[in-house]
Design a protein around this nucleic acid. Structure first.
Lengths: 213, 213
DNA sequence: CTGCTTGTTGTACAAGTGTATAATAATGGA
DNA sequence: TCCATTATTATACACTTGTACAACAAGCAG
């Protein structure tokens, strides 16, 4: 008779936390915010419910950790797209667009996570802080690229406002595309976004050149 | 001794349904999707929990009804803005922008309702259908205005794609502004959106003029 | 091999959930 | 005035939820 195999395996806290976070991401995707309970996550991770409380303060804390994890992955994907693109602001902007509209960024599961996170922003100041930082970083990157393009092409633009508009458009397209892919195609989103860059490069959006009084 | 006052008042089903819908909207705003239960709604409406089941199939059905109600109000607000604007496509487009970034459309509570509705889109085919129709109507209106502007100014544009991009940008700005008003101001959103129209009127977005091969 | 640390389990509990049900009573019509 | 209708209540049920807790055991240090 062989030795009885261990009834469970111990993990380093860091490792176990990560497994729980990944299980949470799957629950949010499959069951939504409402169906993502301590027990559902524990079952998905093949772990007892009590363990969740041992590693996290509660279900909200776990969802925030999940956002941090997944958010970092997305940020890395987009950053990589920019960094590996040719050393040209326009090319980097277009690489950013391409990365935004293909997996793993264009992903229904990702939207489910984002939705439950957005619903926490209002009530939890900590969540609000994380959200603010993530989006600020995200936009600053684009603002730099847009400013660089304007400098190269020698026209003036309020890069901050332009970046706000650009990210809003990308977010809106991404949201709707994840929500209901049958309304329009990925290719439509790409055309629209690239057309915006075309216009920017051609010196469009001159109304954004000066601050209003 | 005065006659005992009635312990409850009867309402026509239609009236009671509306009161429950309004209570649901308040719950979604104050407690979020997770906190919006049959009992919470009933308490908010000063009504017994059982009554909710009497008028609606369940809490999801009630949320869908709430979306229909609130969605219709928003649609009416925006439609009114277009209809009361001067008889000029550009003016109507700008009136639409202005209405989008002031109450009752620009409203944190409205976002809370939208968020919980979006989270239902994925699992409930009926919700998906409603969502599709609402957004299709919303865009068609703008598509017509954009097409009209292009015709008047005698340039070509794929009005469908342009409307997609325009609505995506407005949605993105609206979302972020409701989520965290401290990131940028209402006035910034207005400038960005109006600049988009400036560009359109000036014959921008020429890349959207022809269908791709 | 022994003992300690602590990750992990299993369970118990109170509170909250959706739904079904019979009893109640407000309202309009006869 | 009485009656029939049905909106409304109140309650009960089975279930899920978050959290706490003591017991357990895996893995490491000695």
């Amino acid at each position: 008779m062989t030795a009885a195999e261990p009834r469970f395996t111990r993990d380093l806290p860091e490792v176990r936390r990560r497994k729980l976070i990944e299980a949470t991401a799957q629950c949010l995707a499959e069951l939504g915010h409402a169906g993502t309970s301590v027990r559902a996550v524990a079952a998905k991770a093949n772990v007892s419910p009590g363990l969740v409380a041992h590693h996290f303060k509660g279900i909200d804390d776990l969802i925030v950790a999940t956002y941090n994890h997944v958010g970092a992955q997305v940020a890395e994907t987009l950053t990589t797209a920019i960094d590996t693109a040719p050393d040209d602001a326009e090319a980097k902007l277009r690489a950013f667009i391409e990365a935004s509209f293909r997996p793993p960024v264009l992903d229904r599961d990702l939207l489910a996570i984002w939705l439950s996170f957005w619903s926490l922003v209002r009530r939890d100041p900590g969540v609000r802080k994380v959200h603010k930082k993530v989006y600020a970083d995200y936009r600053r990157r684009l603002e730099d690229l847009i400013g660089q393009i304007a400098r190269e092409r020698r026209f003036k633009i309020d890069a901050h406002l332009a970046a706000l508009g650009f990210t809003a458009m990308l977010d809106g397209l991404w949201l709707e595309l994840c929500l209901d892919p049958s309304t329009f195609a990925r290719e439509d989103a790409l055309r629209i976004a690239h057309a915006w860059v075309d216009d920017l490069v051609a010196g469009g959006f001159r109304a954004l050149a000066v601050k209003p009084r």
